[in-house]
Design a protein around this nucleic acid. Structure first.
Length: 152
DNA sequence: GCCAACGTTGGC
DNA sequence: GCCAACGTTGGC
């Protein structure tokens, strides 16, 4: 059982969009970073819990919880020339990019902003808070997960 | 809109 | 393999 945080720009795909999907489930496509790809492929398993984080918006914040309902499998948007995530170098016989399916669990009672997360020394080791961090998927320890929920 | 940080590309 | 140039991310 692992805990994660995944970023999305709410203008592109928000937690409300996830909640509105059929089965409240969507595939998390478009990750085009090898470090994140490796986590999707090797470490994210069905049942893992994930914080939904809104990035690149007026108030960057953790806004909700989702659950992995299908572990890593090939990101088919990489094969679609009409997709903005198309990658001509990803061969369907040897897919370069991976994704998981996630299901909405709930929104937090309140969004917990990045600026607040930075103030907790308990979270000093969080990868999200590291200077220059750009990874759209980062792991959390169980302790970090529980602490954040305690601040809700 | 600015810009720091980072990843990728490609010439050599 | 090095590294400059470039593109992207994402907070502010």
């Amino acid at each position: 059982m692992h805990y994660w945080l995944m970023k999305s720009e709410p203008e592109a795909f928000s937690i409300d969009d996830l909640q509105a999907m059929p089965e409240q489930t969507e595939h998390w496509d478009g990750v085009r970073n090898y470090q994140a790809r490796n986590m999707l492929r090797d470490e994210m398993k069905k049942g893992d819990l994930v914080f939904f984080y809104h990035s690149n918006c007026p108030q960057p914040a953790i806004v909700g919880i989702m659950q992995v309902v299908r572990g890593g499998y090939p990101d088919f948007t990489a094969f679609d020339p009409n997709s903005k995530h198309f990658d001509p170098h990803s061969d369907p016989d040897k897919p370069r990019w991976m994704m998981v399916d996630v299901q909405f669990v709930r929104t937090l009672k309140r969004p917990i902003p990045l600026s607040e997360l930075r103030q907790y020394h308990e979270l000093a080791g969080m990868q999200l808070l590291r200077k220059g961090n750009r990874l759209s998927i980062t792991p959390l320890s169980e302790e970090q997960w529980a602490f954040i929920l305690s601040r809700e």
